[in-house]
Write a protein that binds this DNA or RNA. Structure first.
Length: 553
RNA sequence: UGCCUGAUAGUAUAAUGGUAGUACGACUGUUUUUGGUGCAGUUUGUCUUGGUUCGAAUCCAGGUCGGGCAACCA
């Protein structure tokens, strides 16, 4: 009965390798550079790498690719660890490319000794010029002719700090005429007299990605080194280094990175948004970062589900952010506690209500039969949402209007009898009468109404601040839109409701959990909450068929 | 005018020479004390031209279009 879910192309490779007995078990790695916060694109890679190991009984390392000391920081290391954990994954080992600096240096020296690497004194401009162009071969300079002994000495001197930044580099000797630019004697070591967040000032030479990454994979005996498509042309170099050094034959496979509508996914751009205060930090709820989504209230499970649904392939893609939101709603619908909050209040007076108050109950979650109920006070004066009343109702509007009846959720059916206005003609309150025998759970009125509204008792309501988020950008394909991406920022991506009225239960609730504010959306408490003010973030709206109807006409 | 890589509904993704399927979206109906949820249904697709074959999304050849590659970044 269990329908076989078809495999993606990487799973097929893994299964074939395992079936052929190529490896006893697989090892993958997630290798971020600690130079920024993780985003939803990284989540795709995390789910892939950790998911593969989990599915096939292997293991996954968390390896920081910290080979460029000037961009990296421990703040990023900590955030990355935190995000991976929060997503629900456990790494077999926490490792750093910088742990291998000694070994990597020795590997490079081996290449020097084999006559496969040489020290070049050219400037970066000269090296670039000598590289040629995609259609034109490069040329080798005189430094390529240095003897092995000379290169050994010079490389050792580079390491010992004899030279300044940029004075010399170590290059690997491959083919200056290769149609693959990356094979034209690529640089594998450069001099940087910079403080490294882990090795301090111990080193002044640092390996380049192409050398460090493959060899780090080899050291860890990574069987399947999975990266994104832009590294495809690097693969021959990856293989070349492993071949020449005879290290563990890790294999690189590439998949298409995630692109999503209405957002940006590059660390450079995200950093720019943070630095230029277009958002409030890396974990701003509008950001595509894992930390932003967490603060916004996206459950980890829904991010995993999303990554699972989008699949793994090699085709460039632009995924509708609506799919992520669908996954978030799907998860939250199952677990969110229902509460009532009125954002834009309109006073309703129940003219025929004689009691002081009464306590009603309402289910915490209709999707969860064991979810229980909470108590809600009802009284003569209530607040409803201002747009749940129309003096002159539109077609198919089945909320409150003069002479029209609605159900107040978990309470009574009311009928609008009168509208009170101020001197300027603004509606200040609505007078209604209630049907005493229509109380929820004990309704003997026999009346059926089409609309059900959320409400709060005016005297019992508590105040809350609600932050409503919308997409950060107002074009679908931000990365490919013309001009500066920042010119497409949605000026209304954050709207704040300062004085929302919430049912009193919300003051007592456990605040780690997600809520659904009835008919408004899913919300989660923000860390800006303090002793005299609750602050909520809107995670995502509910689907709104009426809004769509209104938009159509 | 080089090399690499890709192309299946609006968006993703599957079918690995044998009935083009799934999800999201859209639309319809239904249920509902959330215009939410659930349920049922409808809709739209193999880039192109030729070839191989009983049979092609799949194999072959040409074309078209997209993406990547000339950092002492990763």
């Amino acid at each position: 009965m269990s329908e076989e879910k078809s495999l993606n192309f990487i799973e097929e490779i893994v299964e074939a390798d395992l079936a052929a007995g190529k490896y006893p078990s697989i090892t993958t790695r997630f290798p971020p550079e600690p130079n920024g916060y993780l985003h939803i694109g990284h989540a795709k890679s995390i789910c892939l790498n950790f998911g593969l190991a989990k599915k096939y009984g292997g293991k996954t390392n968390l390896r920081f690719d910290d080979t460029n000391p000037v961009t990296e920081d421990t703040e990023y290391v900590e955030s990355i660890k935190n995000d991976v954990k929060w997503l629900g994954f456990e790494w077999a080992a926490e490792l750093y490319a910088s742990d291998y600096f000694e070994q990597l240096y020795a590997f490079a020296m081996q290449l020097v000794e084999k006559g496969l690497a040489y020290v070049d004194d050219s400037t970066s401009e000269e090296i670039a010029a000598q590289k040629g162009t995609p259609t034109q071969s490069g040329t080798r300079n005189k430094y390529a002719d240095r003897t092995v002994a000379e290169n050994v000495q010079l490389f050792a001197d580079m390491k010992s700090g004899k030279y300044a930044d940029g004075e010399k580099v170590l290059r690997v000797k491959i083919d200056m005429a290769s149609p693959n630019m990356l094979l034209r004697d690529p640089i594998i070591y450069r001099i940087k007299h910079a403080h490294h967040h882990r090795t301090g000032d111990k080193w002044c030479v640092y390996p380049m990605y192409d050398f460090a990454h493959g060899q780090s994979d080899s050291i860890e005996k990574i069987t399947h080194s999975i990266c994104t498509l832009e590294f495809v042309p690097h693969r021959p170099l990856y293989d070349w280094c492993i071949d020449q050094l005879g290290t563990f034959p890790s294999k690189q496979y590439e998949f298409a990175r995630l692109n999503m509508t209405y957002t940006v996914m590059s660390k450079r751009k995200l950093l720019q948004l943070v630095n230029e205060n277009m958002v409030n930090g890396w974990d701003d709820p509008r950001m595509s970062t894992i930390s932003g989504m967490r603060r916004r209230g996206y459950p980890a499970a829904s991010i995993r589900e999303f990554c699972d649904r989008i699949g793994i392939a090699k085709r460039d893609n632009l995924i509708d952010v609506g799919l992520l939101e669908f996954c978030v709603r799907e998860e939250l619908n199952k677990i969110a506690l229902r509460r009532m909050v009125v954002f834009d209040p309109l006073k309703v007076v129940i003219t025929n209500y004689d009691k002081v108050e009464e306590i009603l109950t309402s289910e915490n979650n209709p999707e969860d039969e064991h979810g229980g109920v909470r108590e809600i006070p009802f009284s003569k004066e209530l607040y409803i949402e201002r747009d749940d009343f129309m003096e002159v109702p539109a077609k198919k509007y089945f909320r409150l209007a003069p002479g029209q009846m609605v159900r107040l959720k978990s309470a009574y059916i009311i009928k609008c009898d009168d509208v009170v206005k101020d001197a300027d003609g603004n509606i200040t309150e609505v007078h209604c009468s209630y049907i005493p025998e229509s109380r929820s759970g004990a309704d003997t009125s026999g009346i059926n109404v089409k609309g059900t509204l959320h409400w709060v008792s005016a005297q019992h309501a508590i105040n809350a601040e609600i932050r409503l988020y919308d997409r950060l950008f107002n074009v679908e394909d931000v990365a490919n839109a013309e001009g500066d991406f920042k010119s497409y920022i949605n000026p209304n991506s954050l709207q704040i409701v300062h004085n929302a009225f919430a049912e009193p239960q919300l003051a007592k609730d456990e605040h780690q959990q997600p809520f659904q504010f009835l008919r408004k959306g899913y919300f989660v408490l923000d860390r800006d909450t303090n002793t005299n003010q609750l602050v909520f973030n809107r995670t995502v709206t509910l689907k709104d068929a009426w809004a769509k109807e209104v938009k159509k006409s």
